[in-house]
Amino acid sequence: MWNFIVQTFTWWNGQTMGTRFATWRFGKRVGEDEFGNVYYEGGTSSYGLPKRWVIYKGYAEASAIPPGWHGWMHHRTDVPPSKENYAVKDWQKEHRANPTGSPQAYRPPGSLAVAGERPRVTGDYDAWTPGN
């Protein structure tokens, strides 16, 4: 029952009821990545390209798509990684979740979120005042 409620009222937690129906009706399973995300293809887009979509395992985080699957999803290649011997390149980094809004987020020097004293103004900026 809980899955039904979640799929009815949320889009960020797996798949919605509409996506479940469209996947059942038109989707052809293409493969699965190491994170448990499942990839589908079916139908044709308005550009004449095959429609491709992913059903995330858990929270829908677009940055959780590995590089090989990202290329396939964006029509950079027609062969999905599940049908070829895709090997991660040595220059590719491991996936890291998007840290925005978390303590691990980037905070530049001078940000109000950084502890400590802000750097002094250097004089290269003149504040606007009315009438000048």
Rank of each mutant, 00 (worst) to 15 (best):
residue 4 F to Q: 12
residue 4 F to P: 05
residue 5 I to T: 14
residue 6 V to H: 02
residue 6 V to R: 06
residue 7 Q to M: 03
residue 7 Q to G: 08
residue 8 T to I: 07
residue 8 T to F: 12
residue 8 T to N: 06
residue 9 F to A: 01
residue 10 T to W: 00
residue 10 T to I: 06
residue 10 T to E: 10
residue 11 W to E: 15
residue 11 W to T: 15
residue 12 W to C: 13
residue 13 N to I: 04
residue 14 G to V: 01
residue 14 G to D: 02
residue 16 T to Q: 07
residue 19 T to E: 08
residue 20 R to M: 06
residue 22 A to Y: 13
residue 23 T to N: 05
residue 23 T to W: 01
residue 24 W to E: 04
residue 25 R to Y: 15
residue 25 R to W: 14
residue 25 R to N: 08
residue 26 F to C: 13
residue 28 K to C: 03
residue 28 K to A: 13
residue 29 R to C: 08
residue 30 V to A: 10
residue 30 V to M: 10
residue 31 G to Q: 11
residue 33 D to E: 03
residue 33 D to V: 04
residue 34 E to A: 13
residue 34 E to Y: 08
residue 34 E to Q: 06
residue 35 F to Q: 14
residue 37 N to S: 06
residue 37 N to F: 03
residue 38 V to C: 06
residue 40 Y to W: 07
residue 41 E to P: 07
residue 43 G to R: 08
residue 43 G to P: 09
residue 44 T to I: 07
residue 45 S to D: 07
residue 46 S to N: 15
residue 47 Y to Q: 07
residue 47 Y to C: 09
residue 47 Y to F: 14
residue 48 G to Q: 06
residue 49 L to H: 01
residue 51 K to Q: 11
residue 53 W to E: 06
residue 54 V to S: 15
residue 54 V to R: 15
residue 55 I to Y: 05
residue 56 Y to R: 00
residue 57 K to R: 00
residue 58 G to A: 02
residue 59 Y to K: 10
residue 61 E to F: 09
residue 63 S to N: 12
residue 63 S to E: 10
residue 63 S to D: 15
residue 64 A to R: 06
residue 65 I to T: 11
residue 65 I to S: 08
residue 66 P to C: 10
residue 71 G to M: 05
residue 73 M to W: 08
residue 74 H to D: 09
residue 75 H to N: 02
residue 76 R to W: 14
residue 76 R to M: 14
residue 77 T to Q: 04
residue 77 T to W: 00
residue 78 D to V: 08
residue 78 D to N: 07
residue 79 V to E: 04
residue 81 P to W: 04
residue 82 S to E: 12
residue 82 S to Q: 15
residue 89 K to N: 07
residue 93 K to V: 10
residue 93 K to T: 03
residue 95 H to T: 05
residue 96 R to P: 01
residue 98 N to T: 01
residue 98 N to I: 02
residue 99 P to D: 14
residue 100 T to A: 06
residue 102 S to R: 04
residue 103 P to G: 05
residue 103 P to W: 04
residue 105 A to Q: 01
residue 105 A to S: 02
residue 106 Y to W: 00
residue 106 Y to E: 02
residue 108 P to I: 13
residue 109 P to Q: 00
residue 109 P to V: 00
residue 112 L to T: 06
residue 113 A to S: 09
residue 113 A to R: 04
residue 114 V to W: 13
residue 114 V to Y: 11
residue 116 G to H: 10
residue 117 E to S: 14
residue 119 P to N: 03
residue 119 P to D: 03
residue 120 R to N: 15
residue 122 T to F: 13
residue 122 T to R: 15
residue 125 Y to P: 12
residue 125 Y to R: 12
residue 127 A to L: 02
residue 128 W to F: 13
residue 129 T to H: 02
residue 130 P to G: 05
residue 130 P to L: 03
